[in-house]
Amino acid sequence: MTTEQVASGDMDILKTAAEWRENGQDVALATVVTTWGSAPRPVGSQLAVNGSGKFIGSVSGGCIEGAVVQEALEAMRDGKPRLLEYGVSNDEAWEVGLACGGKVKVFVERVD
């Protein structure tokens, strides 16, 4: 599946999530809950994803969005919330690449 970032402009992430859901689409939300070091987006930053892989908002400067969107699509399928960690200390995450050297924890949940 290809993912595609929706131009956000003045669009509101949580409002968009609600609209997608009302239109019958699967939706998941990702939220930055912890950061260490020079993480690019502050705690509380959010991203909403729909079932076709479209997303709005950001949880990093673009480095981990792809991986987060994949986890969000998984969460839509199994309904389980996830707490993901990305950063330099995590080999797998290093490949995903937080090039800035920061570390973040991202909570991913389905909108039921």
Binding site: L14, A17, A18, R21, L29, E109, R110, V111, D112
Partner: peptide, 24 residues
């Protein structure tokens, strides 16, 4: 997230009512 929580959260934000979302 339950749909009614999202709905309420969006209503609070529209009404400029300060709100905290607590997530376990």
């Amino acid at each position: 997230m339950k749909p009614d929580v999202l709905k309420q959260l969006n209503e609070d934000r529209a009404a400029k009512r300060p709100v905290v979302l607590a997530t376990n």
